[in-house]
Write a protein that binds this DNA or RNA. Structure first.
Lengths: 359, 359
DNA sequence: CTGAAAGCGCTTACAG
DNA sequence: CTGAAAGCGCTTACAG
């Protein structure tokens, strides 16, 4: 065998392009089939040839081309993730959880951001659905939740590509889901305030079309009713944008004798605390504050904030497990009758982390 | 033409697998070439056939298979990102920046996390380098910086795959880089403290092998020297783990008459403030605090924290632009002499956001 | 034991 | 104007 670098393949100094089966075959003067089989340790091939090929391949750091394998196998071993935002502690936590499990199972993850825009969500899904990935893990964009248009998702599912939704999900789509019990968790949070003797509890939430916002509001309402506390809609404010909500919050806190606030996220909570302080209210003495979150602010705020954890890591872990499970057990497509798919919805446990903002 | 769903392709109810050129060709009784050309609007094809094919394809939502295109074109239109951690405001900000530009240019991003582990970094790079992506954008793991082993990166570069490094970079590798001037930014931050009359300024930093930690320390030192302030190594502490650093910090602040602290990240800063408060020190009156960051805590801490911004979005934008630029102008590989690659290092502007922790 | 052929889904230079 | 062939990099059933 002549030296590989005499080949014109090596005309560029320092350039060692990836080597292919074809090139190995040529150098070793055997067929491509033989090379392929040797590298896969097929018993069909004589030991001498096999070892020779393996040694050569090793020397040149041969690694099979993923794209060719994907085309051949019709599976890519990659998971598509579509989320509204990445600069958001909760979502990056979930990605982290997905990545762990994906990696353990030899999958890569490809991430697209919808930016809470319906159009971007659709475009990204269509792009990934054209062969780039084996299945989706996703959380709906605000706009999609508002429009209730899910055609892009049903289409993907109908093509036989599994979808696992988490956190921001919808009942309009049948697929696997991983969620927390937002209503129950909110109920428990508010109940804990009541247990501590708080009488007049306000709610600071998002606009209604965000599914989780709605559910948390329901939990709040139920907790009040359950304890015979009159529901007063003047104690509820819905905030669209965190950046200029101070005034709204100040108005809420003004002479209403509110002694506790339940906020649906930690940004609201920290803003409430700061506003309260400016107004001369002490947290938690005059005002207890509790929030939903999976963030980092609550831990470092002054005072630190009592929160309901969402456990993004676990959510990601479970979503990835469900998806991979489905991918690896997929029916072989051919001829079989369609067994009815049975989808599951996993509800992750939440719990309260008590910190300084309640007592 | 007979109806498509009479085809045995459609035996599964509700299942409309993606359609391929081959199937279209069969249904329409033309060759695959004709279908392909029609869909690409080739003038070679007669108008009647062309329109017929296009109508059919549209009706069945034909979209070319990305994997097949990648194999054919030998480019995937996807960018590989390797970062140490995603649950880190700075890094997710950078990803956001990369994603924007990537999307605008028709690229997807595939993200792998090294978890600050050398081995994971190597494995992930090798995996992606086998055809899955066209180029890398990466920030080194702590372990890699410590070991100074970059063979996996040189290998990828030698194979002709462009790499853009950001933030945590190394001089040992020649490639495009996007960084901030950590030393200068640190210098300016400390200078601002001095300008405000602070005399005894401590430094809270990370362990030395993290490149940016080192550079920031250098900037701190220079600012002191430049102002004739004696350098005192008792005023420097190096923290490996944020979680149990309170004691170390308390010791630092104890009866040393320190009137300012420069922290290399916001987690350190907020911990310093909390510790100071417990010790009866007022921020900023008794102790000014300034930090490096691209986080969210500084904005919501009490008091809010003055910071040097790293502008992750812009870093991501620029890294992506550089990479895509390189990918799209790549020499056609054949025969040409190797022109010396000239790599650039872009230095992003930083600036100080003055908040309550200094005055 | 080895290799030619077909195929994954596409494109494009080349015949006819 | 249409199609057969070659090729991207691989695997595997089938001949020999």
């Amino acid at each position: 065998m002549h030296l590989y670098y005499e080949n014109d393949f090596y005309h560029i100094p320092n350039m060692k392009k990836k080597i292919t089966l074809k090139q190995i075959a040529k150098e070793l003067d055997v067929s491509i089939s033989t090379v392929s089989k040797s590298l896969r340790n097929s018993l069909e091939i004589g030991e001498e040839t096999r070892l020779k090929v393996q040694a050569f391949a090793k020397f040149y750091h041969y690694k099979p081309n993923n794209i060719a394998l994907s085309l051949k196998n019709r599976k890519t071993k990659t998971i598509g993730i579509i989320i509204p935002e990445i600069v958001h502690h909760f979502f990056s936590t979930v990605i982290n959880g997905i990545e762990q499990i994906a990696n353990e199972n030899g999958y890569s993850v490809i991430i697209c951001l919808s930016d809470d825009s319906f159009d971007k969500e659709v475009i990204n899904m269509e792009m990934l659905a054209n062969g780039s990935i084996d299945g989706f893990i996703m959380s709906l964009s605000k706009e999609t939740q508002q429009k209730k248009d899910f055609h892009h998702i049903t289409e993907v599912i109908n093509q036989g590509m599994p979808v696992v939704m988490f956190d921001r999900v919808t009942n309009d789509i049948e697929c696997d889901k991983v969620i927390i019990n937002d209503e129950l968790a909110a109920f428990e949070a508010v109940q804990s305030l009541i247990d501590k003797g708080r009488k007049k509890i306000a709610l600071v939430t998002t606009v209604d079309y965000v599914s989780v916002g709605k559910l948390r509001t329901d939990g709040y309402t139920k907790a009040l009713l359950n304890n015979g506390i009159p529901f007063d809609e003047n104690l509820i404010i819905k905030i669209e944008n965190v950046d200029n909500c101070e005034i709204t919050i100040a108005k809420l806190l003004e002479d209403k004798a509110i002694d506790a606030v339940f906020a649906v996220n930690e940004l609201f909570a920290v803003t409430i605390i700061k506003t309260a302080n400016k107004m001369g209210l002490k947290v938690p003495e005059d005002l207890a504050v509790i929030a939903f979150t999976d963030g980092i602010i609550s831990k470092y705020s002054t005072p630190t904030i009592t929160t309901v954890t969402q456990n993004g890591i676990e959510m990601g872990n479970i979503a990835a497990k469900i998806l991979i499970e489905r991918l690896e057990t997929e029916h072989d497509d051919e001829g079989e009758e369609e067994q009815e798919e049975t989808y599951k919805t996993v509800v992750i446990e939440t719990h309260l982390i008590e910190r300084e903002s309640t007592n």
